[in-house]
Nucleic acid binder design. Structure first.
Lengths: 237, 237
DNA sequence: CGGCTTGCGTATATGGCATATACCTTAGCT
DNA sequence: AGCTAAGGTATATGCCATATACGCAAGCCG
């Protein structure tokens, strides 16, 4: 009788897939995608060698897949669309943006892997539900969903890029950063070409990234609204 | 930074910076960003070693900067905005899209480098001119310009991704590709979750990428139009 | 208790990468 | 003719992912 046997009591396994993924996420959070090496992850877990991880994650790509899905799970996805489809889109996009800001490597690694993680699929399904619920065919819904995601990932990429640039050139002190900006501006201003660009670089737009994100998002949702079936003229405004 | 370095041209030089950039672009066009190695570029130029290139391009990053600017130059940019700002935006975006489709690595490499190439700056300046010409402050103009570029680069990234995936998994035959799609769909359909996603994967949206691009572009331009000063509100100027 | 199996982590090696450094070679000026 | 400097190469370093082989220990069987 199995009931009398002690539980399978799988061998004491010090490493677990979850531990590895957590450590990898921490490494990438701190150092960006280019700091994510098997060696770095192994070291963070303790006195391990890089090869120890391969028992659990098959390959680095496998690890990346797990990482992406793991942080995608941080985005709260309702069971079903609510009454207000705009609010649904807005909430999902905003939550996604918040997650992506916590894990800036997401924008760098996401486009390198097939989007097949279970949590990502759940999220996509929800987006489609919201849009199809407004009368759109699936294909069109997917187009708009992709548009929203491009905006989120693109914004994240922009932030990640700035961070990476600061890291890459060792622009840690405000003084060094200032010098680099001055140099870039000088390049732009050379010969009096690019007056508008120079103006912007001298005083980059007052709106912060969050504000810009919210603005552009509202903007996209408006655009989608104008295209929903049942509207007369999409160009009307 | 590469932009401040003169192109070495003392002697009648067998190698030229331009030759190297052209070869690098050809390598990346054929094999994608991950095929772009100094060794590959050197070999394409003839019986050279990778180190030979360093006399001309300082580093691989420098080479990438030059490549990005070189293909950016393929985008025709008018001297000044025309009468129809929508047409200006539309034309620039469409030309950019055409260029990026010729060089799919652009979307992968562009976000890794500071956007300071001369041709890119010219293009940005033009975009700003068009939008500022419609009464927008520079900061807002930059926000919308970034939105358009995110759309272009995001679309390119999507195409590049598919290509890379096909390359990575050796899905060269239609049969293998079909099997992979079936497997992905099975993953999505598991347990009857994701009915909409499954539907889409069974028959991906009728519209091709070009069509989707044009649709989303029109969509963004409409959105910008609705936000121009003096449109909605009687106030403004 | 003793031997076998099995799975965990390690050691080592391979091949690719960017690139610093030192070197040889040759063009072209004086 | 000889000097100089630039072009290209050879070599080495230090990362990287990862295939392969191995040592070790924990649990199972008898």
């Amino acid at each position: 009788m199995i009931w009398t046997q002690p539980s399978p009591q799988r061998r004491r396994s010090p490493l677990e897939r979850d531990d590895i993924v957590r450590a990898a996420v921490a490494v990438a959070d701190e150092g960006g995608a280019q700091a994510l090496t098997m060696t770095a992850v192994a070291k963070r877990l303790g006195p391990y060698t890089p090869m120890a991880l391969y028992r659990y994650v098959l390959s680095k790509d496998g690890l990346v897949d797990l990482m992406l899905d793991s942080v995608t799970a941080e985005i709260p996805v309702p069971d079903a669309p609510g009454d207000d489809w705009r609010a649904d889109l807005h909430a999902l996009a905003t939550e996604s943006w918040a997650m992506v800001k916590r894990h800036l490597w997401y924008a760098q690694l996401m486009p390198t892997r097939p989007p097949l993680g279970p949590h990502l699929m759940r999220r996509t399904e929800f987006l489609l539900q919201v849009l199809v619920g407004q009368g759109l065919p699936v294909g069109e819904a997917m187009t708009y969903a992709a548009l929203l995601d491009r905006h989120i990932l693109g914004s994240a990429q922009q932030e990640a890029e700035e961070l990476a640039m600061r890291r890459r050139y060792g622009l840690h002190s405000p003084q060094q950063l200032g010098e680099a900006i001055t140099a870039a501006r000088a390049l732009a201003a050379e010969g009096g070409r690019h007056p508008l660009l120079t103006e912007w670089m001298t005083a980059p737009s007052g709106a912060g990234m969050d504000e810009q994100f919210a603005l552009s998002l509202a903007f996209l949702v408006e655009g989608i609204a104008a295209r929903l079936p049942g509207r007369d003229a999409p160009a009307g405004g």
